[in-house]
């Protein structure tokens, strides 16, 4: 299996552990990702707040690059995944948007038809590769891991392309296949605060606190995420949150791909686990036995 790959800005920056774990895990399962040449920013949530037409052109240029290769496009970051999908929906629904996008891209000798499918790695893992094939690859079952599966917003809202919108279960099934325990986590699709954590800190941190506290109450010893911004918000501010809420908040936050890498027996530093600000215990079974 071969796909075009759109890393987006975060997977080359503060979320590089996501890329570092995604590539070897998919490669171990026979999936090859080919990075788009000279990709551009997807536009994220911020661009749409200034200009929608140019926002669609940003997304469409990346889609057009994948179309040239006749490949579906893998977008691991939730923000990119949504924006690319949204561009396709709007171009299909509004002829004005489609015309504007096509005419603009023509100047860059690109054509946009809307034929490329935007895929999320979770979708490929569970629906294309399948849990049985993944199980076969597990050499180091995740014993003692109690995982809170956190999906966040933008991979299931507003477009639920591969999972249930209100109660997504793809990651739940995946972690069970890796030999881990999955805790009940009703806040699995609640917003982490997004960019508010950096702008209106007290609001964003309150939203992160609600998610972290719930994971602790439910007995999780790690929270798994699919999005670099969720990972950052939940991981980077636990010190501030602990002092603001007078409560010891400590919860390692990792990408689902890092947990897969660990179960596949890949060394921790090869799957970016050293990049967690709150470190994860690699052998929680031993801690539980004590």
């Amino acid at each position: 299996m071969k796909f075009s790959y759109f890393p987006g800005c975060s997977l080359k920056g503060s979320g590089r552990a996501y890329e570092e774990s995604l590539l070897p895990v998919l490669s171990a399962l026979g999936v090859e990702l080919e990075e788009l040449d000279d990709w551009n920013c997807c536009g994220a949530t911020a661009y749409m707040a200034v200009s929608d037409a140019a926002g669609y052109v940003l997304a469409a240029r990346n889609l057009a690059l994948a179309e040239q290769k006749k490949q579906d496009l893998v977008a691991p970051c939730s923000g990119c995944y949504l924006v690319l999908n949204k561009c396709q929906h709007y171009a299909a629904e509004y002829p004005d948007v489609a015309t504007r996008v096509q005419e603009t891209l023509k100047r860059d000798n690109l054509t946009y038809k809307g034929t490329t499918k935007v895929r999320h790695p979770l979708d490929i893992l569970v629906n294309d590769i399948g849990l049985d094939a993944i199980k076969k690859r597990v050499t180091n079952p995740l014993k003692g891991f109690k995982i809170a599966p956190y999906y966040g917003c933008q991979i299931i809202r507003p477009y639920a392309t591969f999972d249930d919108q209100h109660n997504p279960v793809t990651m739940d099934k995946l972690f069970k296949a890796l030999g881990a325990e999955v805790v009940t986590y009703p806040l699995k699709t609640r917003c982490c605060g997004g960019s508010l954590t950096g702008t209106v800190t007290e609001v964003g941190q309150n939203m992160s606190y609600i998610l972290l506290r719930e994971a602790m109450r439910r007995g999780a010893n790690v929270l798994a995420t699919t999005c670099p911004l969720c990972q950052f918000n939940l991981d980077a501010y636990q010190g501030d949150i602990s002092s603001d809420y007078h409560e010891s908040v400590k919860m390692p936050i990792v990408y689902f791909t890092q947990l897969m890498g660990l179960a596949f027996g890949l060394p921790a530093e090869k799957i970016g686990l050293q990049r967690c600000i709150v470190p994860m215990d690699l052998k929680p079974a031993a801690a539980l036995a004590k």
């Binding site: 800005c9 975060s10 920056g13 503060s14 551009n40 920013c41 536009g43 994220a44 911020a46 661009y47 707040a49 200034v50 200009s51 940003l58 960019s195 508010l196 950096g198 702008t199 209106v200």
Partner: peptide, 20 residues
């Protein structure tokens, strides 16, 4: 928040990508 949106727009316009 609007400042972030404007700065994001400016950075994408000048570099095509964002460095967080």
């Amino acid at each position: 928040i609007p400042v972030l949106a404007r700065e994001f727009y400016n950075m994408v316009r000048s570099k095509g990508r964002v460095t967080e």
